[in-house]
Design a protein around this nucleic acid. Sequence first.
DNA 1: AAATAAATTTTCAACCTTGACAATTTATGG
DNA 2: CCATAAATTGTCAAGGTTGAAAATTTATTT
Lengths: 194, 194
Amino acid sequence: MARPSLKTQRSHEILAAFAACVARYGLEGATQERVAAEAGVKRTLLRHYLGNRDEMIDALIDHVAADFDAQTEAMLAALPATGRVPALLDLLFDWQRPSDGDRVMTYQALVTAAERLPRAGQAMAAGTEHFAAALRRELAMAHPGAPDEAVTAATLGLMALAFNAEALAPLDLPESWASATRRAADSLVATLEV
Amino acid sequence: MARPSLKTQRSHEILAAFAACVARYGLEGATQERVAAEAGVKRTLLRHYLGNRDEMIDALIDHVAADFDAQTEAMLAALPATGRVPALLDLLFDWQRPSDGDRVMTYQALVTAAERLPRAGQAMAAGTEHFAAALRRELAMAHPGAPDEAVTAATLGLMALAFNAEALAPLDLPESWASATRRAADSLVATLEV
DNA sequence: AAATAAATTTTCAACCTTGACAATTTATGG
DNA sequence: CCATAAATTGTCAAGGTTGAAAATTTATTT
C-alpha cells in the first residue's frame, strides 16, 4: 500500500555512474556532484539511496567486485565447446571491442587505494584471483600434460598482457603493439605444448 | 648581493612530495595541504615556488617523466657487459627491491588522467616508449637472429609483466605468483632462441 | 478519495581547498 | 652596517564539497 521502491534499480544506476566517474577522475575526484550529474539525479538522492560518502564507497567496492566477477563468468560462458583457448585469446585481445576500458580504470583506482581502504584491496584481490583461476583452468584443460608451474606462469603472463593493454589504453601507443601483444600471448600458450 | 635562491632544491623536494601524495591519494586527492605536509613546508610556499595548481601539475608531469627516463637509464647502466638479459630480468623481477612502488602508482595516476591532461598522456607515452625501446634493444642485441616481430612481442610481454607486478603490489596476492611471473618472463625470452 | 510509504526537492551549516596578496624575516654582497 | 632579493609567514575571500534534516510531491493500496 505504498509507492514501489526504486532502491535496487536506482542504487545500481548510481553505482554505475560512480564507477564511471572514478575511472575518469579517480576515487577522490569522483565527487558526489559529479556522480549525481553523471547519473542524472540530484545529489541528495545519492544520500537517500546509499548513505554518506563512506557508505557509498563501500557499496562501490561491492559493485565493482561483482562486476569483475560477472565479467569473468561472461567470458567463460562465451567460449565454445572446442578450441576454447584460442577463443579466449580472441576475447582478451580483441581491440575492436567497445572498450569497457572504464572497468579496468575503476579497478586500478581501487587497487591503488588498497592501502587506505583494506576492503577495496581484499575485494580486488579476490576478483583478480578469481579471474586468474578461470584462466588457469582453461589452460590446464587444454594442456593436460603441461607442468603446473608452466601453466601458472602462462596464466600470469596472459593476465599481465590483458590488464596492461587496458591500463595503458589512454595513451596512444603505437598500433603495432596490439599485434605484438597478441603474439606474446600466443607464445606463452605455446610454451604449454608437449 | 642577495639571499641565495633555493628554487631548484625546494622545487624538487616539493615535486617529490607531490608525486608521493599522488601515488597515495590519486591526482585529485593530492591537495596542496597534503603535499605541503608531506614536504614539511607551509602551503603558501608551494605557490611561491611552483605557481598555482595547474602549473604545479605541469611541473609534476615533467618531474615524473624525467624520473621515469632516469630510471630507465639507471637500469641500463646497472647491466654488466655480458649476460645482460638475465641481469635485466633480475632487475625487473627482483621482489626484494626496496619497492619504489610509488613510482609506478604515480605513473598510473597520470596515465589515467591522460584524457583530461593531454600533456600527461604525451609524457607518459614517451616514457613508456623509451622504456620499451631500451628493453627491445637489449633483447635484439642478445638475440641477433630473432625476427623483429618476435623481439617486439617479447619486449611487450616483459613490460606487461613488470608493470603489472608493480601495479598490483598493493594487493597481497599469492607469493607463488612472484616466481611464476619470473618464469613467464624467462619463457618469453626463450622464444627468441634459435 | 484517503492513507501510506516512498521518491524527490529544498534548504542550511560546516568544512575543505584554492588563489591572491600583504607583511615579515633572513641571508648575502658591498 | 646597509641595501637587496629572496625565503617565509599571515590573512582573507571565493568557491566547492559534504552532511543532515525538513518539506513536498508522487504512486500505490484499500
